[in-house]
Design a protein around this nucleic acid. Structure first.
Length: 496
RNA sequence: GCCCCCGUUGUGUAGCGGCCUAGCACGCCUGCCUCUCACGCAGGUAGCGCCGGUUCGAAUCCGGUCGGGGGUACCA
């Protein structure tokens, strides 16, 4: 079928079909995002399918993580797990009958043949023939009944292979333009195991056909499987199983530091790490979108809605991109700063509880204190976990209050530091009323004017003694929120 | 080895034959602001892998070369 991506002549149907074999990584999210954005842009359907044909490697835990990740990211699907759809089931492990049926039809029309060779035998023949081509050599393509019987008598069980046509397979890749493979380099591939279990090579195209997928957008790592899938799709069309061959677009890979494909082992690639560190889904998605696509020449912070509006698969860059944690953080920070204080508070709440800063449920007093404190921190954090770091001093029990050792040694446990803390203690004891403005006046008068200290030198020790760190919300406001009693208590403990 | 893909500052990109003495963002470096951090503001740094060709004119087109990546399973 020919579906124009510019002016959609028929309903766009795309799918995202991960294998549940590990924890979701950034490539997973980017592929999901592009498919989702493409579907939404064209008013099409986004299908979520689980490719769990490999029983050895697929796990339920991973399946749940994949579903949970898409939910967390806010990439909603129209058909798939949890929501169903007209082309279900959407887990391949539940579709075995469908595959067996297709396999039988393919065999009946000689699109496939039984192969009795072992991988080693085929490789040995290739080597003996001095062939540069790897993979199966088509030995069993036209076996006689006698040969077949002989293999069976040896106790061999066949696998099914697809008969690759001669010539070249060429397609107009949505991202790369014309791509062509000579089929002499594409061996007849296996469609199922000797035990009858269907393989990815069969089920992926079959499901795309059965689910009426119009556009396949996937990673470049699958580029070389496309010359195998297109002939299979054509066979399915010929047999009346499919309505047409989908269009293909191969997305650039996301590379890690060493310019290698980001591996599942790399902690930088795991999505949950970003969630747990307090990245915003929209921030992460925005950054991921940038890896291969730009919304405009002079802008890189945008919302999902804006992306849907502007996304065109033809604008996707074919070259692989390096994942840059710093830029990812910067984009996330931009999204954080676009949120209102109330929104940052809502989003930070689970982190504050997780980190033990707040109790669950939050007490009315803490809730009030939180609302007073958030305006001072919301604008200075880049990710949600930083809220916990900034606010811990305010909510923690005095018994558990700790001062950073390094900061303490450097700023408080020095002669100058001790003098500042002592003077501050004496001055603050008499401050009336206990307000940020008065505290500011008194401390400035005492430390800066009377003692002749530079502001940054003067307030450093006080900040560390009272908040436990050199980085904190504004000092005077922090003191006001902490209250006179706790403030003086902490200053006192910092002495000696 | 073989097949395929890719090649603009450190990183991600804009550029689609003259608007480019190459724009934007992150990073990095300088300042300013300033009670820390962050924000904000003003500057700076650094790039078309290389060689040919086409053309009046090339980052943009063609060829080659080099480099990087992916794939080469009864994994997906």
């Amino acid at each position: 079928m020919t579906v124009s991506t510019g002016s959609t002549t028929e309903k766009v149907r795309v799918r995202f079909c991960p294998s549940p074999t590990g924890s979701p990584h950034v490539g997973f999210a980017r592929a999901a995002l592009y498919n989702w954005a493409f579907a939404r842009h064209h008013g099409g359907t986004f299908v979520f399918r689980i490719e769990d044909t490999d029983k050895e490697r697929s796990t339920e835990e991973s399946y749940e993580a994949m579903v949970g990740t898409l939910q967390w990211l806010g990439l909603d699907w129209d058909e798939g797990p949890l929501v169903g759809g007209d082309y279900g089931p959407y887990r391949q492990s539940e579709r075995s009958d469908l595959y067996l049926d297709v396999l039988a039809k393919l065999a009946a029309s000689s699109y496939t043949y039984d192969c009795y060779c072992t991988t080693e035998e085929a490789a040995a023949r290739r080597k003996a023939a001095g062939s540069k081509v790897q993979g199966y050599d088509g030995f069993c393509r036209d076996l006689s009944e006698e040969q077949r019987a002989a293999f069976v008598a040896e106790g061999r069980t066949p696998i099914v292979r697809f008969r690759m046509p001669d010539g070249a397979v060429t397609w107009d890749d949505l991202v790369r333009g014309e791509v062509s493979f000579e089929t002499e380099f594409v061996p007849d591939f296996a469609l199922c195991r000797a035990n009858g279990d269907p393989l990815y090579t069969l089920v992926n195209p079959v499901d795309d056909a059965l689910m009426r997928i119009t556009h396949v957008l996937r990673g470049e790592d699958l580029l070389s499987s496309t010359p195998r899938q297109i002939p299979l799709h054509r066979a399915l069309v010929d047999l009346g199983i499919s309505e047409g061959v989908p269009e293909f677009g191969h997305l650039p890979l996301i590379m890690g530091e060493g310019n290698k494909k980001l591996s599942k082992r790399d902690p930088q690639s795991h999505l949950w790490n970003y969630r747990d560190e307090g990245f915003l889904p929209e921030g992460l998605l925005n950054y991921l979108a940038l890896l291969g696509w730009a919304i405009a020449a002079d802008r890189d912070v945008f919302s999902l809605e804006e992306m849907v509006e502007a996304f065109d698969i033809k604008d996707v860059n074919p070259n692989p991109a390096r994942f840059d944690t710093k830029k990812c953080q910067a984009i996330n920070a931009a999204h954080m700063h676009q949120l209102s204080v109330e929104e940052v508070t809502d989003r930070a709440l689970p982190f504050l509880k997780r980190d033990g800063v707040l109790t669950d449920p939050v007490s009315p007093a803490d809730q009030q204190l939180l609302e007073l404190a958030m305006p001072f921190v919301a604008e200075r954090v880049n990710k949600l976990t930083e809220v916990s770091d900034m606010l811990r001093f305010l909510f923690i029990d005095e018994a558990d209050f700790e001062v950073d050792e390094t900061d303490r040694a450097k700023l408080v446990d020095t002669d100058d530091g001790q003098a500042v803390v002592q003077a501050s203690y004496d001055a603050l004891a008499r401050v009336e009323p206990w307000s940020a403005a008065r505290i500011s006046d008194v401390l400035t008068e005492t430390l800066v004017e009377d003692m002749g200290l530079k502001p940054r030198v003067a307030f450093g020790p006080v900040r560390v003694a009272v908040t436990g760190r050199r980085v904190s919300p504004p000092l005077f406001e922090s003191l006001e929120l902490l209250g006179r009693g706790r403030s003086l208590g902490r200053l006192q403990s910092a002495l000696g």
